[in-house]
Amino acid sequence: MATLYDYALSGNCYKVRLLAALLEVPLDVQAVDFYPGRAHLAPAFLALNPAGTLPVLETGESVLTQSSAILGWLAATQDPTGRWLPTDEPETLARVLGWLAFADRLTATVGEARLHDMLRKPLDIDAARAGAKQVLRQLETALAERQIAGQSFLAAPHPTIADIACFPYAALAPDGGIALDPYPAIRDWIFAIRSLPGFITMPGIHALHEVLDQP
């Protein structure tokens, strides 16, 4: 079983937990005290990942860093259907890779605004929110066009790792003081992802109440 070095409030770590849950792949989850302990900068952790970033996945054969790379490894090794990373469809694959790069822009803007508001990270919050608006508008436009074409997901007629990579920081935007009211297509896409069988939550991202049994 692969070991995930994890921080419960990290959207990037959640991406890995979410895809593993959707693929029904068990992970050995080791909590790292990112805040307030800063354990990701302690010598023991830096020996594992000199970059000092979470998530880290130990597969038994190698140590993987960067959430998008880990999503790619999970999809390539643990998804017999090949749908989550469609390597045999070059157009779709290219779209997926484009969205993996885009996901880092969400982390750098929405994610930073959230770290400012939740963990008091010192940064220019106005710049972070202005950047977030540009990135969320791009996501909204792309998803609106997908809807116009009758599609619910970013890169294919079914969910791929592109959706998993972009989902957490879009859904967590309110934690960074960024309202999602201006983004109706993002709202529908968030609903579609929360509806996936096997979906799991993290703090700030809830399960669907509509589908739970009446109490």
Partner: peptide, 16 residues
Amino acid sequence: VSTATGLRRGGVMRSF
């Protein structure tokens, strides 16, 4: 406050 298709059935949103 919305297009007719902009709020899915079973959906709720805020508006002003």
